[in-house]
Nucleic acid binder design. Structure first.
Lengths: 346, 346
DNA sequence: AACCGGATTTATAACGTTTTAATTCTGTCA
DNA sequence: TGACAGAATTAAAACGTTATAAATCCGGTT
């Protein structure tokens, strides 16, 4: 009878160690146990040691729900992840970097889809309103990204992948896309190319401007012809990009140097060249940015530079940890440089 | 004075609607509000309507921490994700499928790294012990996967990507790798190839056995020579695979038909062929499985079949939802077939 | 010997839910 | 008129934590 009544407690409990069970085991009160585990100096050192031992013996782990309810802290980091387009391998490397940095910190990663076409603010509002996370990471940052504005207004910890043009500083990790574009132009010009072509991402993203500026100014400085392909972006389908490429090839003066910001674009360019009878190295050259090792095995070989997304994710998560711990946003920025070395990434 | 004391509540609250605030607003008790929102038939229909209206007006959303503490349900699904190796695009497509299926269900995805080299059981134990999720998804399933055993013992909801050889049924989604291997062999043989070669994943994974069986039996039936490359697996570094490939090419009777289970292997094979002076279509052919659209733009073209990982993730999440809702594991299995159609995946 | 102050400890009230057991309302029937 | 069953509501406890405010303890003074 009695056991039936007791049995109705919501969590079967079993024997999960809790502050209460530790209190009973050690003879101290729940409050003392709690403080001792937090290493509160008001608790006698000897007591703290005893409690720590008991906790270890019982394998005590604080209940996240209870702590969260009481403190309002979730111990969760949300990643707003674009699930439409991907830079090959982006998601994998990026996410791996994040989980790696968060390992052992007690924080876990929560993935929420971010659709560029829809309202990008909605998931953020949801997180803010219901305190669904202690911090946010996101990608594909826009020049005046509304998410950045909203999060700054609420003084909510976040790190963006990519800069913005807001004057107030905020934590970010970015790749130096301007430097990439300049390097790409320089290398192609060195090879004697003088009609350069570039396909940009959508205008809204900040890095699009960096790429444009780097490409245009380097090309002007070098005094070579150059074009930014119209009507198509990095996120266009492979088929659309292929069509645009073919159109370009059939011009009287087709480009002879291609700067490719993504792997898909690079492959499409490569196949468009092959399909139009042009020979790489003779009729044109390609310089591409890549995030995965596959280009080591693409033939003909093309020159590439590596964007380390694992490192990017790692750095972003580290910064977010600091920000959540209360650090001021000021110093928390990092810019990764194009990497020439990483040629034989396993 | 008084306001200072009131101000010490841990969550600033602000004006976040809660059961209590709804109770005050409507004049009903907290218990009634709770039941009304759950559509409990014991509450008068009129009352339920009033409460629903008030909740909607206030934009009430139940507090996850409180509900979790009370009920023990987390509303979280954990994905054990391999962060070492990746099938190109695997993570992105798979994760997208999962989040898509979970959209609007109130469940969120939590990503926890799974290192095949280390103890794969540890994250699972952690989740079970501390009730960190209501369900688990994982990949790279082994024939007698200890995670499956542990989860079944605890009657904890999960869906594996890949089958096991346990006799007790459990939910899974798998790709028909045996069919893939048979098709690959058949196509290569049709093209007149009679010395086939295959690089397998590590032996521990169930799908390795399916691939092996499909390959060996199809090759025997067709009466062609065949080999499974020794000393190297799908997860070996590109460099190691390349070396093995080159060794194979320099034999007296090099293979003339390659079955490639992953994209990296296919690209390495392609580059090894090119580097050794062999011409695709004349000296050898490749048949590959792919999970991303890039092969449309690889030249020379190779024949491929598509494994839809977005669909895989979607199905797995759907099944997990059913399982968490209490469905029996019996019917919850699904096997995806190799897809020939998906040639121009955007 | 009573007392004081700093060092330790503890009772207790939240945090926002769900749910058991009890209570209050209805209208009906004797 | 009063009792009563059924419908509708509610008080209160609990989930496991943290933190406020109050209560003990102890050695050293007066």
């Amino acid at each position: 009878m009695t056991r039936e009544i007791l049995d109705t407690s919501p969590a079967p409990n079993g024997d999960k160690p809790t502050l209460r069970s530790l209190a009973e085991a050690t003879g101290f009160s729940i409050a003392t146990i709690s403080r001792a585990l937090a290493d509160d100096p008001r608790i006698a050192t000897k007591t703290r040691a005893k409690v720590a031992a008991a906790a270890a013996a019982a394998g005590y782990v604080p209940d996240r729900a209870a702590r969260r309810l009481r403190t309002g802290r979730t111990q969760v980091v949300t990643l707003l992840l674009n699930t439409e387009h991907e830079f090959l391998g982006f998601t994998h490397e990026f996410l791996s970097g994040i989980t790696e940095a968060l390992r052992g910190t007690g924080y876990s990663v929560n993935v929420v889809p971010d659709h560029v076409g829809e309202d990008r603010l909605q998931p953020v509002r949801n997180i803010l309103r219901n305190h669904l996370a202690d911090g946010i990471l996101f990608t594909r940052t826009e020049a005046f990204d509304p998410r950045v504005r909203l999060l700054m207004e609420n003084d909510f910890p976040f790190v963006s992948h990519g800069r913005t043009e807001f004057t107030t500083p905020h934590p970010y990790v970015d790749f130096d896309n301007e430097a990439f574009a300049r390097i790409a132009v320089a290398r192609l010009v060195e090879r004697g190319r003088n009609r350069l072509s570039l396909i940009l991402p959508e205008d809204r993203f900040t890095f699009t401007q960096h790429l444009r500026y780097g490409f245009l100014s380097a090309a002007r400085e070098a005094g070579v012809d150059h074009e930014i392909v119209a009507g198509v972006t990095l996120d266009s389908s492979a088929a659309e990009i292929a069509t645009a490429m073919r159109d370009g090839r059939s011009s009287d003066t087709p480009p002879d140097g291609y700067v490719c910001v993504g792997e898909v674009t690079a492959l499409v360019t490569l196949s468009a060249l092959a399909d139009s009878g042009a020979v790489l190295g003779r009729d044109a050259d390609i310089f591409a940015k890549r995030a995965s090792p596959i280009f080591d095995n693409i033939r003909p070989r093309i020159e590439t530079v590596y964007e380390d997304l694992r490192e990017t994710g790692h750095k972003m998560a580290e910064m977010l940890l600091r920000r959540m711990a209360g650090d001021k946003p000021e110093g928390l920025t990092h810019i990764l440089m194009p990497d020439f070395e990483r040629l034989h990434h396993s």
